[in-house]
Each structure stands twice: as C-alpha cells, then as structure tokens.
Amino acid sequence: MTRHGEDIGRWLATQRRDWDRLNEEQQARLGKLGVKKAARARKAPAKAATASRQGKGGEAFQKGLEALTQYLARESRMPGRAAVQEMPDGDIRRVGVWLANQKQRRDRLHPDQLAALAHLGADWAR
C-alpha cells in the first residue's frame, strides 16, 4: 500500500528495524499505534555464512575493496557515488556505487569486512 508515493509497509518495517535511531517522541507515537521494535534477527548464523562464503559475494567485496584502496591512493579522499576506478587489468569498477551499497548493507556485513572499510576511512563502518 502506498500513501503519497510512500510504500507504507516498507516505511513501517524501517521504523521497526531502526527503532533505536528514533527519538523518544517518535517511539511513543508509534507505540500508541501498536508498533513495536522489531525482534533482532539471529545474526551469528548470517555472519558465519558471510565469513565462510567463497562464492561471488565474497569475491565481489574483495574486488570492491581493492578498487576503493586504489581510488583512495589516487585521490586521497572517499569517492562520491559517481566515482569509478580503472583497475590494472583494464576493468572499470564503479567504486562510488559499491561503497554506497556497502553502507546501505552494513548491518549484513561481516565484522572483518566492516573493519576493512573502517581502516580505509569509512566512518560509518566503525
């Protein structure tokens, strides 16, 4: 269901998931409507799966991290969304989009992945 172009179900799920980011008044208003904080998903199995995954997802992260490292060495600043990095093998990587995607998915990243991003200067990964 949408209201003024906003997907109400998605909005509600976001409010429940990000409950701790809401201020007290927002929490109280949602509480009066019967909305509660979302139960935390069991993260340990998901992290273990991410850590042990040798498939495309793990490789994609490593390639993105490599591109980010090279971009930072060249530019000395974090990339904007439109930033690209040409790799030594001639591959063009959209490092800005990759970094934005990692930030959006940070709750699903393995702690080692977050640490690697934080080491490169991604404040949101700390």
Rank of each mutant, 00 (worst) to 15 (best):
M1L: 14
T2H: 07
T2K: 11
R3E: 15
R3H: 15
G5D: 04
G5F: 01
E6S: 08
E6G: 05
E6A: 10
I8P: 00
G9Y: 04
R10I: 13
W11M: 15
W11G: 03
L12N: 06
L12D: 02
A13L: 06
A13M: 06
A13K: 08
T14F: 12
Q15A: 14
R17E: 15
D18P: 00
D18V: 06
W19R: 00
D20I: 07
D20L: 05
D20N: 13
R21W: 01
N23E: 10
E24N: 12
Q26K: 07
Q26E: 15
Q27R: 15
A28D: 12
L30E: 15
L30N: 13
G31D: 12
K32A: 04
L33K: 11
L33D: 10
V35W: 08
V35E: 09
V35H: 13
K36C: 08
K37S: 13
A38W: 03
A39G: 08
A41H: 03
K43E: 13
K43I: 14
A44S: 11
P45L: 06
K47D: 14
K47A: 14
A48T: 07
A48H: 12
A48D: 15
A49N: 02
A49H: 06
A51D: 07
R53K: 11
R53E: 15
R53G: 13
K56L: 14
G58F: 04
G58I: 04
A60W: 00
Q62N: 11
Q62Y: 06
Q62G: 10
K63I: 13
G64W: 02
E66N: 11
E66S: 09
A67R: 03
A67P: 05
L68V: 09
L68I: 04
Q70L: 14
Q70P: 01
Y71M: 00
L72E: 01
L72T: 02
A73H: 06
E75M: 09
S76P: 01
S76F: 07
S76M: 02
S76V: 07
M78K: 04
G80N: 07
R81W: 09
A82N: 04
A83D: 13
A83T: 08
V84E: 14
E86D: 09
P88C: 07
P88M: 07
D91W: 07
D91G: 06
I92V: 15
I92F: 03
R93M: 10
R93W: 14
R93C: 09
V95Y: 08
V95W: 00
G96A: 05
G96Q: 09
G96K: 12
V97D: 12
L99V: 09
L99K: 00
N101H: 13
N101V: 13
N101R: 13
K103Q: 08
K103M: 02
K103T: 07
R105I: 01
R106T: 00
D107A: 10
L109D: 02
L109Q: 01
H110P: 05
D112I: 08
L114Q: 09
A116C: 01
H119N: 12
G121N: 03
A122P: 00
A122W: 10
D123K: 06
D123L: 10
D123P: 01
W124T: 03
A125H: 00
R126H: 07
R126A: 14
